[in-house]
Simulated assay, not measured.
Amino acid sequence: MQKPFDVFVLEAPDALAVHWGWALALGVAIGVLGILAIIRATAATKIAVGFLGILLITSAAAILLFSVSVAGLWSDFFVHVLWGVLVGVVGVILLTRPMLSAEALTLMIAFYFLISGFSTIGYAFSAHLDGLWVYLLQGGVDLLLGLLLLTGWPFTGDWAIGTFVGIDLLFKSWSIIALALGLRAISEGPLF
Results as ranks from 00 to 15, higher is better:
Leu129Asn: 12
Leu144Asp: 02
Leu148Pro: 00
Gly139Thr: 10
Leu143Met: 06
Ser67Arg: 06
Leu149Arg: 03
Ala124Phe: 07
Ala124Met: 11
Leu148Asp: 00
Ser59Gln: 06
Leu148Ser: 04
Gly53Asn: 06
Gly117Cys: 04
Leu149Asn: 02
Ala102Asn: 10
Asp76Thr: 10
Leu150Tyr: 04
Thr58Met: 13
Ser126Thr: 10
Val141Thr: 04
Arg97Trp: 10
Ala127Arg: 07
Ala104Tyr: 09
Leu147Thr: 04
Gly146Met: 03
Ser75Gln: 11
Leu95Glu: 04
Ser59Arg: 13
Leu105Pro: 08
Val68Pro: 00
Thr58Glu: 08
Trp74Phe: 13
Leu132Ala: 14
Leu82Asp: 07
Val89Gly: 02
Thr156Leu: 07
Val85Thr: 09
Met99Glu: 12
Ala104Glu: 07
Pro98Leu: 00
Phe78Val: 12
Val90Met: 14
Trp83Glu: 15
Gly88Tyr: 02
Gly131Met: 15
His128Ala: 15
Gly140Asn: 09
Ile109Asn: 05
Leu82Val: 11
Ser69Tyr: 12
Leu56Arg: 09
Trp74Gly: 12
Thr120Met: 14
Val87Met: 05
Leu129Thr: 15
Leu136Asn: 04
Trp133Phe: 14
Pro98Met: 05
Phe118Tyr: 11
Gly152Pro: 09
Gly140Thr: 06
Val141Cys: 03
Gly131Ile: 12
Trp153Ala: 04
Gly91His: 01
Phe125Val: 10
Gly88Ser: 01
Val141His: 00
Asp142Glu: 13
Phe111Asn: 08
Trp83Ser: 13
Leu107Trp: 12
His128Pro: 00
Arg97Met: 12
Glu103Tyr: 01
Phe125Met: 05
Phe125Thr: 07
Ile93Lys: 11
Val89Lys: 05
Val92His: 05
Leu55Met: 13
Leu144His: 01
Gly53Gln: 08
Leu114Gln: 00
Leu114Lys: 02
Thr58Asn: 10
Ile54Met: 10
Ser101Pro: 08
Val85Gln: 01
Val81Leu: 13
Leu64Asp: 01
Tyr112Leu: 13
Gln138Pro: 03
Ser101Trp: 01
Ala60Trp: 02
Gly91Thr: 07
Val92Ala: 14
Ala61Asn: 05
Thr58Trp: 14
Leu65Pro: 00
Ile63Val: 15
Phe78Arg: 08
Val89Thr: 03
Val81His: 04
Thr156Tyr: 07
Ile93Ser: 06
Gly117Leu: 06
Met108Glu: 06
Thr58Cys: 12
Thr58Pro: 00
Ile109Pro: 00
Trp83Arg: 14
Leu73Gln: 15
Asp142Pro: 02
Pro98Cys: 03
Thr96Ala: 12
Arg97Thr: 03
Ser67Gln: 08
Trp153Asn: 07
Leu64Met: 08
Val89Trp: 05
Glu103Gly: 12
Pro98Thr: 02
Ala71Gln: 10
Pro154Ile: 04
Ala71Trp: 13
Leu55Arg: 10
Thr106Ser: 11
Val70Phe: 05
Val68Thr: 00
Ala104Ile: 14
Ala61Pro: 12
Ile121Gln: 01
Gly152Arg: 06
Ala104Pro: 04
Ile57Asp: 03
Leu145Ile: 07
Ser126His: 09
Phe155Ile: 12
Ser126Phe: 11
Ile109Thr: 11
Ala62Trp: 12
Leu150Pro: 06
Val134Ala: 15
Ile93Pro: 03
Ala102Leu: 08
His80Gln: 11
Trp153Thr: 08
Leu65Asn: 07
Thr156Ala: 01
Ala127Lys: 09
Phe111Leu: 10
Phe78Glu: 10
Ala71Glu: 08
Gln138Asn: 13
Gly139Trp: 05
